[in-house]
């Protein structure tokens, strides 16, 4: 047998033992946690839920030296942990260490969620779990940016002031004068109102969840980016119930899928006639030509 052939066989045997190993390691974690993987199994994404039901994705990249060298990891967290790795370590150890890390960050995220729910945060459309700062709208002319210490979330945050000189000057003076009165055991918004000596705005009700733009079926404003959805991939809601007291918005993809799945729907050419899932009034939707 020539040398090249022998080399090829060796390489194949090596990669098949790699696949076997990864399969058994994923099995230990549970397949339901695996949300995505690369074809060569060198890129794995796991979904882990923390105590409060917040969902976190851990991306693990394995290079050719695995398991002799630790895998590299990435996640939407304010800071990562140092992976402890030995020759006997397996992927489930990575998950366990990640879970411990999430545990450590619970107080931080509880506080960030509390801020998002109780104060008027500007630009809350795509909050990332890694972000440790929030911009708050204080008045028409002033904003502040608060940076929270992820390791010590109840401590006095760093504060930067944005806006007109006069407004900012007053706030800054108050902050300097009162910042010693920040109490760790008091709710964040109460502390902030106290230190700045002002009335704070609650979250805007319009921004919260607008039934005009969110689809009444999938609950998202935009469809996921997905080849299967063809031209509709990533598009917003494009169809609304005509009953004025209902006015629910839908993606025509979602509404079409639903209407097609029930027997009472009628079809004429490429239009489906059925009833709005919310108010039962008649509703019609043009069928999507999928790839």
């Amino acid at each position: 047998m020539d040398c090249a052939e022998q080399k090829r066989c060796q390489k194949l045997a090596k990669s098949s033992s790699f696949y076997r190993r990864i399969y058994s390691e994923v099995e230990e974690i549970g397949w339901e946690h695996l949300v995505r993987f690369g074809e060569d199994l060198r890129l794995l994404s796991f979904r882990i839920m923390d105590k409060k039901g917040r969902v976190h994705i851990l991306r693990i990249t394995l290079d050719g030296t695995y398991p002799n060298h630790p895998p590299s990891i990435a996640a939407d967290v304010p800071y990562l942990f140092n992976l402890k790795w030995s020759i006997n370590s397996r992927l489930k150890d990575v998950i366990q260490q990640f879970q411990k890390h999430l545990e450590k960050l619970q107080d931080f995220w509880n506080l960030m969620d509390d801020i998002d729910h109780s104060l008027l945060v500007s630009d809350l459309r795509y909050p990332q779990r890694a972000l440790s700062h929030r911009q708050l709208n204080i008045s028409n002319e002033c904003n502040i940016i608060l940076s929270i210490d992820a390791n010590d979330p109840t401590s006095l945050p760093d504060c930067r002031f944005l806006g007109s000189d006069s407004g900012v000057e007053r706030l800054r003076a108050m902050w300097r004068k009162n910042c010693k009165r920040w109490m760790r055991d008091k709710p964040f918004s109460e502390n902030l109102a106290h230190v700045l000596d002002i009335q704070l705005h609650g979250p805007s009700s319009i921004e919260k969840s607008d039934p005009q733009t969110e689809c009444g079926i999938c609950y998202a404003q935009y469809l996921p980016i997905d080849d299967e959805l063809g031209a509709k991939s990533g598009s917003g809601t494009d169809c609304t119930c005509e009953n004025f007291s209902c006015s629910r918005a839908f993606h025509s993809v979602c509404l079409g899928d639903w209407l097609r799945s029930i027997t009472t729907t009628r079809q004429s050419f490429d239009v489906l006639f059925g009833n709005c899932p919310y108010c039962s009034d008649p509703i019609a939707v043009k069928m999507n030509t999928r790839k």
Binding site: K52, G53, I217, C218, A220, P224, D226
Partner: peptide, 16 residues
């Protein structure tokens, strides 16, 4: 993906 997204929102709403 769509089911996952919707369930996460339902769970969030449930918690609140």
């Amino acid at each position: 993906k769509i089911a996952c997204n919707r369930l996460q929102k339902e769970l969030m709403e449930w918690q609140v």
